[in-house]
Design a protein around this nucleic acid. Structure first.
Length: 448
DNA sequence: GAGGTACAG
DNA sequence: GGTTCTGTACCTC
């Protein structure tokens, strides 16, 4: 991969503030095709042209598929154990998810996209909404420049949909994906209107952003089956029978913007750290160990976002796919003495809260820590007297620094500091190296 | 405000 | 034997 280009090669980064709405602007939706698969391929040329899937945590089920896999008729969410036998015959390769790699490539892509837009909303790990300004050239041309820039600097393929609203930009992006002759860019207003109408008449409502299977079923019952039919439905009727969200979709399909571009990500309201185990966890002491670790991970994330939490919920449950064992779902909520991101306090609280509630003999399959009542760190002053000893000594920040410099496993409190990884840690048997974020796993380039 | 439903990626 | 994780908004009570 090429390094990020110097800033002088490009327009300046997207400005802060609210984007204007006007005839000289459009909304673009840019996303990476089969993002996780494309990340794996960017570092392993052997994966090109063959069916590739990326698996969820614990190598559980399919979360990303290459085009070859989509053509084989394999759905997202398919459990790997149902696929494994057939995979060999297909020549399919499965990779464990490697969020460190995807997160790093995502930042690079997002930064590049921001440089090519008047405004940017980073919408997900692989998508941005961009505000395009007509003064920077024809929208289709801007889309092509964006595609070329991302391909050159990261090796990742993106598609660009351009339209007057977010919903239509999403739709245009879909058209760009499904029609290779468009070269990955679709400006809805640059297409003949009857052509767009013909597509909208063919595509089912569930092809739209915000309309999934359940809403789709209910809409079908009213006789609304296609995008065109939803566009032409009565917005007020739709609001009354469904909700304002679906009504906004109707209006946006007509080119009336109802969903703002949000350049600034609002602070999180809640944070969850939850994992399924590779092997069940039994007993209060083992579960205490798990919770201590999970609470520290949650604390680290919280600190990274410069937030503190007032309320903690810990939960654990046995597998819902087994009826032959003691079944148990436990959850309990505690209020922290002060809003905090302190790993010592949080792991103590998590351990004490779960210990008393674990059911003896129940094989827990999954557990987690949920933090709510989040606020920005330092927003509310805290009496010095109320701070714990570790908060005074800033142990949390110290642990954070060590983790950043030496990795997640370099330091931990109590049993989280175990040298050996516990046996219930999630299974990631098919993981590729952290090519870009770990010195020991950097990609090697051979030249001759 | 809590808890359930629905959606997204 | 084995089926992800995280986050938000809306609706109902």
């Amino acid at each position: 991969m090429l390094p990020a280009p110097p800033l002088t090669d490009h327009p300046p980064a997207a400005p802060a503030g609210h984007p204007p709405i006007g005839p000289e602007h459009r909304t673009a939706l840019v996303d990476v095709n089969s993002f996780y698969v494309s990340c794996e391929r960017a570092f392993d040329p052997k994966l090109a042209g063959i069916p590739v899937v990326v698996l969820s945590n614990n190598d559980g089920c399919v979360v990303a598929r290459s085009d070859e896999v989509k053509r084989l008729g394999v759905d997202n969410g398919t459990p790997w154990f149902q696929l494994a036998a057939r995979a060999k015959g297909w020549g399919m390769v499965a990779k464990s998810s490697n969020y460190e790699l995807y997160g790093d490539l995502s930042s690079r892509v997002m930064e590049l996209l921001g440089r090519h837009a008047a405004w940017q909303e980073v919408y997900s790990i692989d998508e941005s909404f961009l505000g395009l300004d007509a003064r920077r050239g024809a929208y289709v041309e801007q889309g092509r420049v964006i595609r070329a820039a991302v391909a050159r600097h990261t090796g990742l393929p993106v598609c660009v949909g351009v339209a007057r609203t977010k919903t239509l930009a999403k739709f245009a992006n879909r058209i760009a994906k499904q029609n290779p002759h468009l070269g990955g860019v679709c400006d809805l207003d640059a297409m003949p209107a009857e052509h767009v109408d013909a597509i909208m008449t063919r595509v089912p409502v569930t092809g739209l952003w915000g309309i999934a299977s359940r809403l789709g079923k209910r809409l079908n019952l009213m006789g609304i089956e296609t995008v065109a039919q939803l566009r032409d439905a009565d917005p007020v009727l739709i609001r009354d029978r469904f909700n304002v969200v679906v009504m906004r979709t109707v209006l946006e399909l007509r080119g009336i913007p109802c969903i703002e571009l949000e350049p600034v990500r609002p602070d999180k309201q809640q944070m969850i750290f939850s994992r399924s185990f590779s092997t069940p966890v039994v007993g209060a002491e083992r579960m205490a160990q798990v919770m201590g670790l999970y609470a520290q991970q949650a604390a680290a994330r919280l600190a990274k976002e410069h937030q503190v939490a007032k309320i903690m919920t810990v939960f654990a449950s046995t597998s819902r796919f087994r009826d032959d064992v003691v079944s148990s779902i436990v959850s309990a909520t505690v209020r922290m003495p002060n809003p905090t991101a302190d790993p010592v306090l949080m792991s103590k609280a998590a351990i004490e809260t779960i210990r008393a509630r674990v059911v003896d003999g129940a094989p827990y399959a999954k557990a987690g820590v949920m933090l709510t009542g989040l606020e920005p760190a330092g927003a509310a002053p805290v009496f010095d007297e109320f701070l714990s000893v570790h908060e005074h000594r800033n142990i949390g920040a110290l642990i954070g620094d060590v983790t950043t410099r030496f990795g997640t496993h370099a330091i931990g409190l109590g049993r989280a500091g175990l040298i050996r990884v516990p046996e219930w840690t999630m299974k990631r048997q098919r993981m590729s190296p952290r090519y870009t974020t770990d010195w020991d796993e950097l990609a090697t380039v051979h030249a001759r």
